[in-house]
């Protein structure tokens, strides 16, 4: 008999439903299914739900619901939960891997015993899954990096990673939505803004989405960056039919 799902206490404003161990698509699919089901159900007192690799955090208002009642409602939902591996949108995001935008590309290639071109080919061949967002607004943890590119994080994190940096660490890839400190390896840059306060939906990616990368030239990068900065870039066009 499986030990999961397990319910864990976050005081009188939350509890989590944990579906399994580690970073696993099937486990995460259950997280996303409960996230979607609770989003639909709009149970009184539920404030919002936060999906992560293997657990869903249910935040509630103790003035409008009780843990006992919500927990039993959630347990009832778990019985009928239908998890699907594909629930989100599919994106094709442009990345420029030119050396001046990819400060760690040569180092990553050397450590993985590959040529820089092979690193790029491997990175663009992947189809990545957004397990969760966190760390900063709009930062997506995308799993599915090819095992030939797995490296631990940098021993010395950078104090300033440029906005739009495309990075890898362990089994994950990400794009920095902001200039920020960061310890991942920077292998390219996108002209896109993963977070743009001026957009009607400021945060581009959501948990459950899938992402592929398309290599672009430095000229294309400059042209797209210009459109992004002018506010004329059509983000919807980046979504592709699965």
């Amino acid at each position: 008999m499986s030990n999961y799902p397990q319910i864990r206490s976050f005081g009188d404003t939350g509890f989590s439903v944990e579906f399994g161990e580690g970073i696993d698509r099937a486990v995460n699919a259950q997280v996303m299914a409960l996230h979607a089901a609770l989003g639909e159900a709009k149970l009184p007192g539920v404030v919002e739900t936060i999906p992560s690799f293997r657990a869903l955090l249910v935040q509630y208002d103790p003035l409008n619901a009780s843990r006992a009642e919500l927990e039993s409602q959630v347990r009832a939902m778990l019985a009928g939960l239908k998890a699907s591996l594909r629930t989100g949108r599919l994106w094709r995001l442009p990345v420029c891997y030119a050396p001046d935008l990819a400060p760690d590309l040569a180092d990553v290639a050397e450590r993985c015993k590959l040529s820089p071109d092979a690193v790029i080919a491997t990175h663009t061949a992947g189809r990545y899954f957004v397990y969760m967002l966190g760390f900063m607004p709009g930062l997506a943890y995308m799993g599915g990096l090819d095992a030939s590119l797995h490296l631990p994080r940098r021993k010395e994190p950078r104090l300033k990673v440029p906005q739009g940096s495309v990075a890898i660490a362990e089994s994950m890839t990400t794009i920095y939505p902001w200039e920020s400190p960061g310890g991942w390896h920077l292998i390219g840059r996108t002209p896109l803004r993963l977070f743009d306060a001026g957009r009607s939906e400021p945060i581009l990616l959501a948990a459950g989405d899938e992402v592929t990368y398309a290599a672009i030239s430095a000229d294309d990068y400059a042209a797209m960056l210009n459109r992004v900065e002018q506010g004329t870039f059509d983000y919807a066009a980046l979504q592709v039919k699965p």
Binding site: F10, G11, T13, G14, S16, G22, I23, I50, P51, S52, F53, R54, A55, L56, L57, Q59, M132, G134, F135, Y141
Partner: peptide, 10 residues
């Protein structure tokens, strides 16, 4: 632990 959601007061 694997990163997961937080509440105020965690």
């Amino acid at each position: 632990i694997a990163s997961e959601g937080l509440v105020t007061g965690s």
